[in-house]
Amino acid sequence: MADNGKRDIIICEDVKKWFGDFQALRGISTRVYEQEVVVIIGPSGSGKSTWIRCINRLEVHQEGRIIVDGIELTSDVRNIEQIRSEVGMVFQQFNLFPHLTVMQNITLAQTWVRKRTKAEAEEKAMALLERVGIPEQAHKFPGQLSGGQQQRVAIARSLAMDPKIMLFDEPTSALDPEMIKEVLDVMKELAQSGMTMLVVTHEMGFAREVADRVIFMDQGQIVEEGTPEHFFTNPQHDRTKLFLSQIL
């Protein structure tokens, strides 16, 4: 239980991860409660992606425990697919399926993983396309959309699975400035609707406005965490101060 009485939905205990001899995560311990919005910042190579990818097991941690919605991530296959369909993920490079239309991108996993009928899936897809503001693009192919539109489709595709948690790995880093806002607006709306979100981003405006908590990582560990208030007015650690001075 978190202090505010909400349930912990992600629990990480001393999570460690190596790539060969190189240790990418040096013991991450933290808890995320339901409906919390956590923004993760840190220099390149600090292990931000590696950590959130461990949460839906695109990467496998070697030591420590990760518990998502009450289920511990182990090598048992059944758990993994169950977790993955509860945890949506949005990538920096969108990763839409280029051979399928926008509509098919959003309905595919609904029908095959969630076992919905085609009609249900399409209705859901249209509703989500409305929500992210591009219902008119439903029958185009991803290659025919702008980057911002593609990323909004990718968000809709994840949301279609009714996830309890959404992970975002630098969702706006591959976008032109004009398109960043349209994606951030969708994410803000999502945060206000009560979704639990873990967001790796360099968009400090978003962090300041939406985040409940900011985590600063470096060298595979959490260096400092706290409210956006705390970070932008009164950072404590020297490393944090240096980093913030470089990006702000």
Binding site: Q82, V87, F91, L96, F97, W112
Partner: peptide, 30 residues
């Protein structure tokens, strides 16, 4: 096929068989 395609399919909870039949193989054949 870019690694991201596999990751996106996995992240949506697809099994290996579904990922192959629906995502990677059709693109590879094309």
């Amino acid at each position: 096929i870019p690694k991201g395609q596999y990751e996106a399919a996995r992240a949506l909870g697809m099994t290996t068989a579904q990922m192959t039949m629906l995502i990677t193989l059709p693109q590879a054949l094309r």
